[in-house]
């Protein structure tokens, strides 16, 4: 099986994630979109690691997972606290800094 297929899959996943972030108002869904984009990037890193025959890309993928885990924790915490104060999870309602 050609490695190109993995790259195509990675591109499709990244696009789905980006569309989810851009189009969905629910912040949970948007976070999930972000996760999807990160994992698409991971897939691409691993694919290229295989392509080049070294472990550099895989090491990067581990870093990305680590950062993604931290990001999800902080992101969800923010979403929860915003939901508590504003009774809404819509990211369009979070515009207090405007004006």
């Amino acid at each position: 099986m050609s490695l190109v297929n993995y790259l195509v899959l990675s591109g499709i996943l990244f696009s789905i994630g980006a569309v989810a972030v851009l189009l969905r108002r629910n912040s949970i869904i948007a976070l999930m979109g972000v996760e999807l984009m990160l994992n698409a990037a991971n897939l691409m890193l691993i694919t290229f690691a295989r392509w080049h025959g070294n472990l550099h890309g895989e090491v990067f993928a581990f870093f990305v997972m680590l950062v993604a885990a931290a990001e999800v924790v902080i992101g969800l915490a923010i979403v929860v606290s915003i939901f508590r104060t504003r009774r809404s999870a819509s990211i369009d309602d979070v515009n207090l800094l405007k004006n």
């Binding site: 980006a18 851009l22 990211i91 369009d92 515009n95």
Partner: peptide, 14 residues
């Protein structure tokens, strides 16, 4: 340009 909508910022970044 500063609409306050996170999604439009994200779109601009993209």
């Amino acid at each position: 340009l500063q609409t306050g909508y996170i999604r439009s910022y994200a779109a601009i970044m993209l």
